[in-house]
Design a protein around this nucleic acid. Structure first.
Lengths: 232, 232
DNA sequence: AGGTGTGAACACTTTCACAGCA
DNA sequence: TGCTGTGAAAGTGTTCACACCT
């Protein structure tokens, strides 16, 4: 945490080089958003301005420039950013397009839905193995991918050189699964179980909790009279 | 936005009374988390301390107290908070247990998974109608709930007195659906389409974007060497 | 002792505003 | 003129530390 107290600062090298500054969560989410806009809207070529990106992502031009400037300065003053170059840089910054290999834990309702969710694959996250405890499911195939029992987890992770796990098992089984998968060598976890999960340092966790989002909505609605402002 | 510049302050009345202070998103998420812990862990009765809640939700005791104090002071010094009372208060604060009536837009992969996602129902969000454009799906039933065509949307919303909509349609159809559903009278939207959607003031939106979460994970992983700290 | 409620300090994020370059 | 890059200012959220109650 107190690494890099004094920073070599100003590395105008490749964006692949680890920028040592702490990048905030909100910045990362916005980078992802910018990339989506670039791929979709600024699809052709030419340049795109911070204002354009801001308008399509619901933020301000200054915010966009601040976010991008963290990783170096590669805009053309008076013009904006070269769209394809920026997209490429963002992908490199975020480690996309490397073909992450993913194991899906839990082939229940959410699990299967996620498995067939084409956006994951489209963005370079390949679910190459599925694990489920249900003996009825084990051995069956999901779109060509075999379902393994938990006992074969670490073997599977090693064989397929898997780096990421998606946890889609019931809440009470989540921590156990996380421990197993981390022991097997996985370094990142996308958690769909509504529980705080614990991982050793060096393992990244990102939690998705849809009930929490619905409840946040309920909260906003309950006090809609007091505060009329909408937001993303 | 500039309503309530001077606040009547210190309303020790019911927590139902609109507290005029702005409550941050992170606070709302934490409240939801506290409630889940109370229901699960402090299931019996007795009192629960801020430290206990903090430990199970990955925050600090001071943070818990700050969050709760926004809505009045109802802890017992030296004891903590009475678990069932606190749970009830949180539910009231967040507008839960009122039985929100929800329409699901899109009966595709994500849509159907969400429909069968029991946690929504368990927490008082009832999907009472489903809408899909596919003529093959229209008329069929999902677990007893009929699938309507978009033309019958506003009629359906009115008939069932629906307050919330879940958007689970393809990204390019999302804004159109949102407009329709808002016109029909819905005041809150849970959006699963990966697009910034626009709503008139007074309508609450909460977006869920799993690809963004995966990309955030990818980002963390890509720079795992620089920053070893794990988080929720 | 043990635990709440809260002002004040601190840390982090966003916005402003403008110099600098094409 | 148009738009980037960035210090400085403003705004928000979190942590500290302690008075106060049981």
């Amino acid at each position: 945490m107190t690494l890099f107290t004094s920073i070599p600062d100003d590395m105008y090298t490749s964006s692949l080089a680890a920028v040592s500054r702490k990048v905030s969560d909100s910045t990362v989410r916005r980078l992802s958003h910018y990339l989506r806009v670039l791929e979709l809207h600024g699809a052709g070529q030419g340049t795109v301005s911070s204002r354009h990106l801001a308008e399509h992502t619901g933020t301000t031009a200054a915010q966009v420039r601040k976010d991008l400037s963290i990783f170096g300065s590669f805009g053309k003053r008076g013009q904006g950013y070269e769209a394809t170059e920026l997209a490429g840089r963002l992908r490199r910054i975020m480690g996309l397009g490397l073909g992450w290999r993913v194991v899906l834990l839990g082939a229940g309702r959410i699990g299967s839905a996620l498995f067939e969710y084409t956006d994951f694959r489209a963005r370079g996250f390949d679910i190459v193995a599925v694990v489920d405890t249900d003996p009825e499911k084990v051995g069956r195939r999901l779109n060509g991918v075999e379902i393994f029992p938990p006992e074969r987890l670490s073997e599977t992770v090693r064989e397929h050189d898997i780096q990421l796990a998606i946890i889609a098992v019931p809440a009470n089984a989540a921590q156990e699964m996380v421990d197993a998968v981390v022991a097997a060598g996985v370094r990142g976890i996308l958690n769909f179980a509504p529980r705080k999960i614990r991982v050793p340092a060096g393992v990244a966790v990102q939690s998705v909790n849809m009930v929490m989002d619905l409840e946040a909505l309920s909260f906003k609605l309950s006090r809609a009279d007091a505060d009329p402002g909408p937001a993303e």
